[in-house]
Design a protein around this nucleic acid. Structure first.
Length: 212
DNA sequence: CGACCGATCCTC
DNA sequence: AGGATCGGTCGT
């Protein structure tokens, strides 16, 4: 059987160059592909967070100069913003909107889809561990996908790191507050986190309302 | 130039 | 609940 992913369309620049909240919602269900000498890995996006630049106290670009760490966020949408956190983990963001609008989408969790053996190896997990340990958090998914600072600024319409449209959008999407931004005052209440609620691969379990 | 701290993860 | 670990950012 031939590779079922090679026939899927790549997301074009126009997909990314829209409002960051729209892009964050519509990224759910899309396939993230990372190609490297070690092999190709694929994950389905199940959790995202929007960061809205100068209008959002939680954003790295809230008050930062357009040079330095956040410079790529000022480029037109469709590039990778990768940063180091806590000195030891990477987080992967997708730059959104037009040039000079420093908005981006943090990818927080993936459903592992292709080449799970390579993901297990990179995450140093035993084969008997559940696949949910591979990509259920922004640092974990960067390890599993092989995303490091060397992909800072990478063009997501290229061949090393790109997104595919599998066709059917997820039927359910919900919005919640973002994770670990307690410092962000009023912005911590914004409903800028988007999840596929029934996915077992989220970074945190959803708080379920009681049903009788 | 030094101190502080984080869009995290793992182990205790 | 706490430690690992380091570059960006801000204050002196």
């Amino acid at each position: 059987m031939t590779d079922p992913y090679s026939s899927l369309p790549k997301l074009p620049p126009s997909f990314y160059q829209r409002d960051v909240l729209t892009v964050s919602r519509e990224l759910l269900g899309k396939l993230l592909v990372a190609q490297s000498p070690e092999g190709r890995v694929i994950g389905r996006i199940v959790e995202t967070e929007a960061y809205r630049g100068h209008e959002d106290k939680a954003a790295h670009s809230f008050r930062a100069s357009p040079d330095g760490r956040t410079s790529v966020m000022y480029e037109a949408g469709g590039r990778a913003y990768v940063y180091l956190i806590y000195g030891m983990y990477c987080c992967f963001n997708i730059v959104a909107d037009k040039k000079d609008v420093p908005h981006a989408v943090l990818i927080r969790a993936l459903e592992p889809v292709d080449n799970l053996p390579l993901m297990y190896a990179r995450r140093k997990q035993r084969p008997e561990a559940k696949p949910a340990v591979l990509c259920s958090g922004p640092g974990k998914l960067c390890q599993a996908m092989g995303i490091s600072l060397s992909l800072y600024g990478e063009d997501l319409t290229g061949s090393r790191l790109y997104l595919l449209d599998p066709g059917a959008p997820p039927p359910n999407i919900i919005a919640t507050p973002r994770i670990n931004i307690d410092y962000a005052e009023e912005a911590k209440n914004y409903l800028y986190r988007f999840v596929i609620p029934d996915s077992p691969f989220l970074s945190k379990k959803l708080i379920q309302s009681k049903t009788p």
